[in-house]
């Protein structure tokens, strides 16, 4: 079993870190731990934030840091001993890979020495795990990308990446929920809205969800608008 590292990142926030690697097994443990905490929270618990291999718990003045540390440590033993079933939703996300939207697709194709069709086929060939949501509201970090699709980040980040852009970098793939500067290679765009504060939950995807991309034509993409 993994001996987690437990440390403060704030006087009222403690991280329990299971691993410094991106692995599905560890992330399953992180999400299981989050569910265990949320279903039976300690007094003073505020919120839990999952990342690849760690979970961070925010708390208030109604509980001491020492109590939270012990609680997390005990809970991690219990959670490690139970079976870790995936509880995430299965979600299909339509993506238009037309180079007018996936503006970096030609560069990626040239860099990888593959045809654009081959890249689309590879990107849509497998299911991805949503490891965490972060960077900006609603941005899903997903993996693991087929090795043949691994590309570096841009040397100079783009000033504006449009909302809905589906991008890749290293072993990861993600979706930009809003127009922001960014360094990942954009290969397509989804018409779905990734972040909407008026809906519950506000993020379309959740850590632990399983995603598969479905290619759509430019016409189909435009009909979504």
């Amino acid at each position: 079993m993994i001996i987690p590292r437990i440390y403060n990142i704030h006087d009222q926030a403690i991280t329990i870190e299971f691993s410094q690697e991106i692995s599905e097994g560890t992330n399953l443990l992180v999400i299981a731990m989050q569910h265990a905490i949320e279903s039976n929270p300690i007094k003073g618990f505020v919120e839990a934030v999952p990342a690849y291999g760690s979970l961070t718990v925010y708390f208030n003045e109604h509980v001491s840091a020492a109590t939270v540390r012990t609680w997390l440590s005990d809970l991690s033993v219990q959670v490690s001993n139970t079976s870790l079933a995936t509880e995430g939703k299965q979600i299909s996300i339509p993506v238009c890979y037309d180079p007018s939207l996936g503006v970096d697709l030609p560069w990626v194709a040239e860099h990888l020495n593959l045809s654009m069709e081959a890249i689309i086929a590879l990107h849509t060939s497998i299911e991805y795990r949503v490891y965490m949501i972060g960077f900006i509201p609603g941005f899903p970090y997903m993996g693991t990308l087929p090795t043949a699709l691994e590309v570096p980040r841009k040397q100079t980040p783009s000033m504006k990446i449009p909302a809905g852009s589906v991008a890749i970098a290293g072993k990861q793939t993600g979706i930009y929920p809003a127009e922001v500067p960014g360094g990942w290679q954009v290969i397509g765009r989804t018409p779905l809205r990734m972040f909407d504060p008026s809906t519950t939950p506000c993020s379309f995807l959740n850590a632990g969800d399983i995603v598969q991309f479905k290619p759509i034509t430019l016409e189909a993409f435009n009909q979504y608008q």
Binding site: I9, H10, A13, A51, Y52, G53, S54, T56, G134, F135
Partner: peptide, 27 residues
């Protein structure tokens, strides 16, 4: 590997400059 950060964290960029995260710190 990315993990949670919050207000008050002093992180060091690849260029070696420290940044103190403030109220609007990313998660």
């Amino acid at each position: 590997v990315s993990t949670a950060v919050t207000t008050g964290i002093v992180q060091v960029t690849h260029e070696g400059d420290p940044i103190i995260l403030m109220a609007d710190a990313q998660t």
